[in-house]
Simulated scan of single mutants.
Amino acid sequence: MKSSVDIFLAFLRLGLTSFGGPVAHLGYFREEFVHRRRWLGEPAYADLVALCQFLPGPASSQVGIALGLLRGGYAGAMAAFLGFTLPSAILLVVFGLGLATLPLDGGWLHGLKVVAVAVVAQALWGMGKTLTPDRPRATLAIAAATAATLLPSTAGQIGAILIGGVIGWAFLRVDTQLPHATLPVRTSRRTGAGLLIAYLVLLLVLPALAAASDSYAVKLFAGFYHAGALVFGGGHVILPLLQAQVVPPSWVSNDAFLAGYGAAQAVPGPLSTFAAYLGAVSTQSPAGWLGAAIALSAIFLPAFLLVMGALPFWESLRRHDGIRRAMPGINAAVVGLLLAAFYHPVWTSAILSGADFCLAAAAFLLLVFWKWPPWLVVVLSATIGGFM
């Protein structure tokens, strides 16, 4: 078992350098923990991604929590979360308190968007070769990408995974599946069931408690827990719900909300740390660092409860023959969803000119063939973007 300090430092490095949103984060995780550190294999990593695609909340953060849990137990899960989340949360709170000076419209920011294209392309390159090695699974991946592109919603994404699983179960032979290493889940099924029940109880009780309470801290916690508990995909998907939560009751002005949203695009790590900014700039009390801590804890608590509660059952379910036959189809569908996200929003928001394409291609070359570390490619791309 890895020490919590080791896990924290590994995720802190990613928390400081992982630009590009949740899809890019999954690419960073894969490179760091599957290939560089070899904490788990490609099939096991694909299993985690597939599970977190099913769960509400920020998928990339949930994968990080799961990796920390598998490597270091509950303390490892917390260490992974803190390492990956704190850099962006602190930067956004500092910005909210008026101490940030970085221009949010500089070319360096566009350079970060461009390098995200290379990061996601690298993940597609590697996962595609491993998880879609034959015509049936490659076809499934393209079909899933088509469905997710034409139906850009949570229903389209989950539907693609479900259909991929059904096709895998019905048509793919068991001997076509990828080898599987049992995940070292240390949470018992009884504990997992208790955590899932806690998730549901809080979801039902907190709104009533907030309605009956005059405490802003209770209302803040309840509102952000609700946002983290019910929205699939996290990131940009959660922003409209957050805006409806904080702007109408005048907790945060719309101008402050939009300014923070712009700042959130310029920092590494999960976009859901935008919650820390909203808690910090609130017109109510507590605000500042305490308000940020309450909002941040509330929005990520569902991710902890769901991941730690679902993992024991996931590992047990995938041992059944039907699930084993479905998993190759599910994994192929996950590759397809990554391909769809690679097109939009990653490619469409970053590649706006021939120069952008050349920079992305060069970053891909450095990552895949020259094996440069991702953080160095990120810094280089941001620097070049500042002169474009």
Rank of each mutant, 00 (worst) to 15 (best):
V378Y: 09
H226E: 10
G96I: 08
A143M: 11
L86D: 06
G64H: 10
Q62C: 15
L102D: 06
H35T: 13
A259F: 09
G107P: 01
A362I: 14
G41R: 14
V120Q: 04
S3V: 14
G20E: 00
V114Y: 03
L102P: 08
I299K: 12
F369G: 05
F29D: 00
A310E: 02
A244I: 04
M78T: 12
L112S: 05
A361H: 10
H344D: 12
A350S: 14
I197F: 15
T383L: 13
G234C: 09
A361T: 09
Q245L: 07
G106C: 01
T283Q: 04
V93M: 06
L14D: 07
Q122G: 06
W169L: 04
L376A: 09
V252N: 03
M388P: 06
A275Q: 02
L380R: 11
G68R: 03
S61F: 07
L296D: 11
A295Q: 01
L306H: 09
Y261H: 13
A170G: 10
V368R: 14
S285W: 07
P268R: 02
Q53G: 06
G223W: 00
V34Q: 10
R36V: 00
G164T: 01
Q265L: 10
A361P: 03
A326I: 14
T273G: 06
A361D: 05
F11W: 02
V247M: 14
L150A: 04
V377Y: 01
L338H: 03
L239T: 01
Q265H: 04
K2W: 15
P133Y: 15
P270W: 08
S18W: 02
P58W: 04
M1A: 13
G20M: 00
P56H: 11
V335A: 04
A266N: 11
L97V: 12
Q177E: 13
L99N: 02
A80C: 07
G291H: 11
L51I: 09
L380T: 15
R318L: 03
L178R: 05
L296W: 13
R37M: 06
V246A: 00
G168D: 02
K113A: 09
Y74D: 07
A229Y: 15
W370D: 08
L271K: 02
V174E: 07
W39K: 04
E42K: 10
F221G: 01
V93R: 09
L365S: 12
L104G: 10
W375Q: 07
L140Y: 11
L40C: 08
M327F: 05
Q284S: 15
